Structures are given as C-alpha cells and as structure tokens.
Simulated scan of single mutants.
Amino acid sequence: MKAIVLDAPGPVEALQLRVVPDPVPQPGWVLIEVRAAGVNRSELHTRLGMAEGMVWPRVLGLEAAGVVVDCPGG
C-alpha cells in the first residue's frame, strides 16, 4: 500500500510517500481500502516532535474513510 511515512520529527519535507506492506487485521479490527485521509492536529504534533512515546518510523493518516475489505472475527 502507499503511505505517508515519517522517520523522525522534522519539517514538512520529512513526510515521505512510500510503499509499505499491507497491514494484517487482528480479530476485532477491520482493514479498509482508504478512499480519503487527512492529517489532524495530533499528527501535526507528531511531525513537530511534540508528541511523546512515538515509535519510528510512523505511518500518518489516522483519520480515514473507505471500504471495509477484511474483518476477521466478524
């Protein structure tokens, strides 16, 4: 899948479009084919280094809308 990835806090130029492996949903999770995504204030804080406890690299785009393609466990 294509994703916006941040390796560490930095300027806007630190955001990179990459191809990463498709996530595998766990029971109780859903996998969606994203049709639209946005960057919210939390992700802005992540990019600026203001969020604590981040694991790097990090895929951004927590707010998304799309179509469910897998839902293990119902």
Rank of each mutant, 00 (worst) to 15 (best):
G66M: 03
P72N: 02
V20S: 03
M50A: 14
V55C: 10
T46G: 01
I4W: 09
P11N: 13
P57L: 04
P11T: 13
V20M: 06
H45W: 15
W56D: 00
P25F: 02
P9H: 07
W29G: 07
V30R: 07
E63N: 05
R41H: 15
V5F: 05
P57Y: 11
V5P: 04
A65F: 09
V34C: 00
D22W: 08
V30Y: 10
G53M: 07
L6G: 02
A65V: 12
N40D: 08
V67Q: 00
A37K: 04
R58W: 13
P21C: 06
W56M: 01
I32L: 08
V5G: 05
A3P: 01
E13D: 14
G49H: 10
V67W: 00
L44Q: 12
V68W: 00
G74D: 09
R47L: 06
G28Y: 09
P25V: 06
G74I: 04
W29Y: 11
V24L: 12
V34F: 03
P57E: 06
V69C: 02
R47C: 03
V30I: 10
V5K: 07
A3N: 04
G53Y: 06
L62Q: 12
E33N: 14
L31H: 00
D7M: 08
S42I: 15
W29P: 00
P21H: 09
A37Y: 07
V59H: 11
G73L: 02
S42K: 13
M54D: 01
V69L: 04
D70L: 03
P72K: 00
G10W: 13
V69I: 11
T46F: 12
P72S: 00
P23G: 03
L48A: 10
V55H: 15
E43K: 08
L31N: 02
M54I: 15
V69Q: 05
P23T: 07
L62G: 13
V39E: 03
D22Q: 11
G10S: 08
G74N: 04
N40P: 04
W29D: 15
M54K: 14
L17A: 08
P9A: 01
D22E: 15
M1K: 11
V24T: 15
K2P: 03
P23R: 09
V12R: 15
C71N: 09
G10L: 09
A14S: 12
V5D: 01
G49N: 06
I4R: 07
L15F: 10
A8T: 10
Q26F: 01
A51P: 03
L44K: 12
L48M: 15
G61D: 04
C71M: 14
D7Q: 09
G73N: 03
G53C: 07
A51S: 14
V24F: 04
L15D: 03
P27W: 01
Q16R: 14
V30W: 02
P11A: 14
N40G: 09
G10E: 01
A51N: 11
K2E: 09
R18C: 05
A65T: 13
N40S: 10
P25L: 04
L15T: 05
E63G: 05
E13G: 10
R18K: 10
M50F: 15
R35L: 10
A8E: 12
L44D: 11
C71L: 13
G53N: 05
L15P: 02
